[in-house]
Structure formats: structure tokens, C-alpha cells
């Protein structure tokens, strides 16, 4: 393993993040605060408890997931799309590094950034609502796994994208609906039966459910299935990236 290269890529990507640290933090904190004001305080006060938790607290895990998933995808997709777009990827392709090292550098940095944002949002949430985390270790585990798996997916999107529109398109057309319909703001059990079945095809449901379980000890789907789903998703992304580097798809002629 060329650890020096992994470290170099990681630090190089993190430097980009720290250059724009103010924007990186202000935007998610602001939008989360707005969610808390609108859903938690204004609408939430008229909603009864969900699964024994106040509505304001109930949406905390969903909101964190919403931001972490979006951030992971956008960070990782931009991180690899940018060098591809401006041509600096030549250096990566001609360097003595293999796909795993490239992925660890880029995806590691993207996941770290998303994790930062997730933690900041969690801290913001404490300022708005009262809640406790029942299984803090599991919570951290789910958060880290989500950051990594969706950064892997973002990396794939970044390599696939041929222009900036496409880079925006997948998050907009696929990820946002999946996250919103994944139970961020409600329990799947609140849906009509047909939609409950459809929801089980949405991978994000398992993530949010598992993550919420770590907060409140209650989940829409069994925790084991949640872990299995996220594990499979991560493995699938790694397999796709391995194939991309093996065939040179969209990166090497």
C-alpha cells in the first residue's frame, strides 16, 4: 500500500474543504435550524408523539441523515469530477497508486467532511429539542457507515457524470426523493399499507430506521436488516468502483 499517496490525496481534499469552511458549515446549520423551527416547533406542536417520542426529537435522526447523505454524495462526486473535468486526473492515473488508494483518499475525505456536518447538525439539534441518545456507539457507527457508503456512491456519480448538469441530476432526481420518502420526517408505519411495501424497496429507509433506533431504541425495520442493507450497499459500491478502475470506464481510454 502506498500510504503516503493515500494521505496526500486525503489532506489535499481536506484542504479544499477547509478553504471554504464557513460556507460548508453555515448552509447545513441554517437549513437544519429552519427545519427545526418549521417542523419541530410550528407543525410539530400540533402532532402527537411518534413511537413515544416528541415529533421534534423524532425528526432529529432523519434530518442528520438527510444532510449527511446529501453532503457525502456532493462532496465525493465533486471531489473526483473536478480533476476529471479540468484534466488534473492525468496525475492520478500516471501515479504509482491503485484504485483502492485513490478511493481511500477521495472517499475518506468526502466521508470525513460529511461526518463533520453530521456532528454539527447533531449539536444544533440539541439547541432546539430535548432528547437523549440511547446507543451512542451504534449511533456513531451508523453515521460513519452512512458517510462512507454514500461517499462511495458519490464517487461513482462523479466518474459517471459527463458535465455539471449530470453531477447535479442524480442527487436531485434520485437521492432527494429517496431520502424524503425514506422516513426522515415520519415513521413508515404512518403510511398506507401499499406505500409501506413500496418503502421497503427504498434503501434509505433501512438507514434512517437503524439510525433512529440508536437514538430512541425503536425502529421501523429490525436493526439486523438495517445493518445488512447498508453493508450490501457499501459492498456493491466498492464492487462498481473496482470494475470502473479495472476497465477504465470513463476515466482511462
Amino acid at each position: 500500500m502506498n500510504w503516503t499517496a493515500v494521505k496526500s490525496i486525503y489532506l489535499f481534499e481536506m484542504a479544499r474543504f477547509f478553504r471554504t469552511i464557513t460556507q460548508s458549515f453555515i448552509s447545513p446549520v441554517l437549513s437544519t435550524s429552519l427545519y427545526f423551527v418549521v417542523f419541530g416547533a410550528a407543525i410539530g406542536s400540533r402532532i402527537q408523539e411518534v413511537e413515544g417520542v416528541s415529533y421534534g426529537a423524532f425528526i432529529v435522526p432523519g434530518l442528520i441523515m438527510l444532510s449527511v447523505i446529501t453532503q457525502s454524495i456532493s462532496n465525493a462526486s465533486f471531489g473526483i469530477y473536478f480533476p476529471k473535468c479540468i484534466g488534473t486526473i492525468f496525475e492520478l492515473l500516471s501515479a504509482p497508486v491503485n484504485f483502492l488508494e485513490i478511493v481511500m483518499g477521495y472517499v475518506g475525505a468526502a466521508a470525513t467532511k460529511a461526518l463533520f456536518i453530521g456532528v454539527i447538525i447533531l449539536a444544533t439539534a440539541f439547541a432546539f429539542v430535548d432528547f437523549e441518545i440511547q446507543y451512542p456507539l451504534a449511533m456513531v457507527g451508523f453515521l460513519v457507515l452512512t458517510c462512507i457508503s454514500f461517499s462511495l456512491m458519490g464517487f461513482i456519480i462523479g466518474i459517471w457524470a459527463g458535465n455539471f448538469e449530470q453531477l447535479q441530476l442524480v442527487p436531485l432526481l434520485i437521492i432527494t426523493p429517496l431520502v424524503f420518502l425514506g422516513g426522515s420526517f415520519y415513521s413508515i408505519s404512518m403510511l398506507p399499507p401499499v406505500w409501506q411495501i413500496i418503502s421497503h424497496f427504498n434503501p434509505v429507509v433501512y438507514l434512517i430506521s437503524g439510525f433512529r433506533w440508536s437514538f430512541f431504541g425503536a425502529a421501523d425495520v429490525p436493526i439486523g436488516i438495517s445493518l445488512l442493507a447498508i453493508g450490501l450497499f457499501t459492498a456493491l459500491c466498492i464492487a462498481v468502483i473496482w470494475w470502473i478502475f479495472k476497465t477504465g470506464w470513463r476515466i482511462r481510454q
Binding site: 502506498n2 503516503t4 499517496a5 496526500s8 490525496i9 489532506l11 478553504r19 501515479a95 504509482p96 497508486v97
Partner: peptide
């Protein structure tokens, strides 16, 4: 947006 020195150092690191 990179600085000259940091981009040159990066290349060295990338090559291990």
C-alpha cells in the same frame, strides 16, 4: 485555486 507549493508537494506525496 491551489497554491504553487502545495500542489508541488502533493505530487511528491502522490508518488509515495
Amino acid at each position: 485555486f491551489e497554491k504553487v507549493q502545495s500542489t508541488v508537494k502533493f505530487s511528491r506525496g502522490l508518488f509515495g
